[in-house]
Write a protein that binds this DNA or RNA. Structure first.
Lengths: 251, 251
DNA sequence: ATGTCTTTGTGAACGCGTGCACAAAGATGG
DNA sequence: CCATCTTTGTGCACGCGTTCACAAAGACAT
């Protein structure tokens, strides 16, 4: 492994684990903060703490990118910011369209985090004629009839869907047909897309349900000792000592 | 089944894999849709397709909950809806507070997906005195001075943070101190919490950066064939024209 | 130059999650 | 009651991701 000088990529290029890719933005954020404070170098231990991960994991993650870092010293902050940015493709400009300008779409349009990192809101699109022409976050909303033209004129490859679930799939289909190959979906629907198109979904309802599961578990463990009743908070007797015979039986 | 009797949980209660928990809401959504169409039973194959997962995975997931399902027939939709709801803790009411009523907070308050599944917005909280008293989504915004009182009066255990990143940690600390044990964080910051408190984060910026990575990769592969081999499977040299010798070197 | 001390980079072991493939369960028809 | 056919539930193997633990690399002081 990089026995010597030739800081050559080695493993590099291909084969960066998906889990690592998902953490790179986290590291980048922490590094950017350090950069703004003019911190020159940082150790894997410090950076890991700032990013909320294990230091060994961080070092292994970085090892997939190459051998940046100096033993006994740590990592050069600016250099690492550049390398990660380049790896993530943030050194170029990514025009993005947001389809569905309701509450959420408008919130995203106003979200500063977009522009900060190479992403530019190229257009806001909505199916409601009444929305067309209105300004949201300083950008004029365009009608969805223009969707295909907007995509191709601006060379958009990333689309954000914030429409109601009922129309998400057809919006998705149109985006893909027009040339979009990456979609961030906020609609609570499973989107089907052809190979080669990436979809990531953000679903609040699901996140809350996962939290509820763990919350219920915590509550259940507290009152686990007492079975019958008790339970200061009417917790429904989750499943304590079991005894949960199906209340409803299928036909 | 429904043969009733022995169907004892077995593995049940404890030990449901995290990955499975994360998919239960997905199944539940698909099942609810089937229920509304009055579909009585569904096979693992059909349900898996609707939820966008592998059918073997789905069956294994359900096996952690117990042996619901009838061989040769499939699963009883209503029964399964009930079982998953109960497992996720959705048969009870979860009061939730949203802290930080900016664009995003307001969007979430208006989001219908909340109320639909056992979650109830108990309060909207903001630090801006000018916001206090204003109605958002039919709920009066309260000042953050009231935070502790609101939490305890309503028995809130789930908090949603939609504040600017700078104050997210202190809001988090106050929520936890007041008794909140599950947090959904939309602020782009790493939150540190004591053991026993769950945090899930939703970060648009990170999602976009992950998409950008894959997008760049795709673009790189397209132009990769032009140098050496036509390579039916252009796996190597994914980073464009390459030639990416470190442009900046660390000190 | 040499020794010491810090921190990286990674081999290796482990655990979780996924998917295959099939035996067992039970419905259905004759 | 038996045969057949469908679909579940799961044993097993594999691959990915995480973590430990340590040798090697290099900075720094003497």
């Amino acid at each position: 492994m990089a026995t010597g000088r030739t800081h050559r990529p080695a493993t590099r290029s291909r084969g960066i684990p998906e889990a690592t890719v998902a953490r790179l933005p986290l590291y980048l954020r922490a590094l950017t903060a350090l950069s703004e404070r003019s911190v020159p170098t940082v150790s894997s231990e410090e950076l890991a703490a700032a990013a909320g991960v294990n230091s060994a994991k961080l070092r292994k993650d970085f090892s997939y990118l190459g051998s940046y870092g100096t033993r006994g010293v740590g990592y050069d902050v600016e250099y690492l910011v550049y390398q990660i940015s380049r790896e993530l493709g943030l050194t170029q400009d990514w025009p993005v369209v947001i389809v569905g300008i309701g509450n959420l779409g408008a919130a995203l349009a106003n979200y500063g985090g977009f522009a900060s990192r190479g992403f530019r809101v190229a257009a806001l699109i909505d199916a409601d004629p009444a929305m067309a022409g209105r300004q949201v976050a300083g950008i004029a909303v365009q009608h969805s009839d223009e969707l295909e033209k907007i995509i191709s004129d601006n060379g958009v490859s990333i689309g954000v869907i914030t429409t109601p679930p009922g129309v998400a799939q057809q919006v998705c289909d149109r985006l893909v047909a027009a040339g979009v190959t990456s979609i961030l979906n906020f609609a609570p629907t499973v989107l089907s897309v052809p190979d080669g198109v990436d979809v990531r979904k953000v679903d609040l309802s699901i996140e809350l349900q996962i939290l509820a599961f763990h919350e219920q578990r915590k509550a259940g463990e507290e009152t686990a000792g007492e079975d019958a009743v008790a339970a200061s908070v009417p917790k429904e007797t989750p499943k304590g000592p079991d005894g949960d015979v199906p209340v409803v039986m299928p036909a």
